[in-house]
């Protein structure tokens, strides 16, 4: 080893020693920061949620109008009829699907298909007809048309639904498959409306409407933490949903509804037989079943046992 090389090594060694001294001094003299955290990254985080809404159990009638462009949404037939109970304290909910062609007493008009009640007397008469049939009077009635529904689903960025059946429709080139389907606004609207491709027609359609509601709930819950998400969605609701609720009440109701836990969301469709009333194909609903569901779920929007 040459002398120059040895000298060079010595020089580097001294430099290292000097740096080591600096670091050692630093380690000794730097006191802990005033707000130094404990030397652990495991921090117990506790959380609490609560939304005030009175009454804490409420029933909402959701109506989808089949109004075509230019027709009044509130004076057309109702294609989707869902009576939904929400318990804002427990996070439970029960949806009771009413087949559109249910042949029932419409107050003041005798026996008719239930969906014509909206055409005859608007959402108010529709609420009375459903109330007489099921035995629960809704606290609120919300009505939307095709385009309003599409806009609302778009405003939350689409939904994912779990379909029981595979079927095709031009709006979704790949078709709807059994299991999870990601749907945009139009695709969701078709999923909730289509009837002829389903084995039990009107009944399966009503079940798909409930799956759509569950998809909306899941989507909203997963995004509710995003700044501005709920407000943007509610702005779309205000624009596309007919309700006499003031926006501030709607805000409270929507925030309470996001407390529904999907695992506690029971969905039942009122069963019945298919027959004819004159020339019209109708559903003769199982009123006893409807009343049984209502009796069990009325007080707390919680349904135990079978549909």
């Amino acid at each position: 080893m040459s002398r120059a090389s040895l000298r060079d090594r010595m020089r580097r060694a001294r430099q290292l020693v000097a740096l080591a001294v600096v670091l050692a001094v630093t380690a000794v003299v730097v006191p802990p920061s005033a707000l130094l955290d404990a030397p652990t990254s495991l921090v117990k985080v506790e959380s609490a949620q609560g939304v005030d809404h009175e009454p804490h159990v409420l029933w909402v009638l959701l109506l989808g109008s089949d109004a075509r462009p230019g027709q009044p949404v509130l004076r057309s037939r109702a294609d989707a009829i869902q009576l939904v109970g929400i318990n804002t304290r427990t996070g439970a909910a029960t949806a009771i699907g009413v087949p559109r062609d249910s042949y029932v007493d419409v107050p003041g008009y005798g026996r008719q298909k239930v969906n014509i009640a909206m055409y005859l007397g608007g959402p108010q008469l529709m609420a009375r007809a459903v109330s007489d049939m099921v035995g629960i009077t809704p606290d609120y009635v919300f009505t939307t048309g095709f385009l309003g529904f599409v806009a609302m689903v778009k405003s939350i960025g689409g939904i994912t639904v779990t379909s029981k059946f595979a079927f095709t429709d031009p709006v979704k080139p790949g078709g709807y498959r059994v299991g999870k389907n990601k749907l945009g606004g139009f695709e969701a609207m078709i999923f909730a409306r289509i009837r002829k491709s389903l084995p039990r027609g009107d009944f399966d359609r009503s079940a798909n409407q409930q799956r759509t509601l569950l998809g909306i709930l899941n989507r909203v819950r997963s995004r509710a933490d995003q700044p501005g998400f709920m407000e943007r969605a509610l702005l779309s609701v205000v624009a596309n949903l007919d309700t006499n609720l003031p926006p501030s009440e709607l805000f409270r109701l929507a925030q309470a509804a996001t407390g529904i836990e999907p695992s506690k969301f029971r969905m039942c469709v009122i069963d019945g037989g298919i027959g004819f009333a004159g020339a019209a194909s109708v559903v003769f609903p199982d009123i006893a079943q409807a009343r049984s569901i209502a009796d069990r779920a009325r007080a707390d929007a919680t349904l135990e046992g079978p549909c």
Binding site: P32, A34, L36, E46, Q49, Q255
Partner: peptide, 16 residues
């Protein structure tokens, strides 16, 4: 305030 969704954590500070 009609609703809340809050999380809380606490850690000891200032070991010295």
């Amino acid at each position: 305030i009609f609703g809340y969704d809050l999380a809380r954590s606490h850690v000891p500070v200032g070991k010295a």
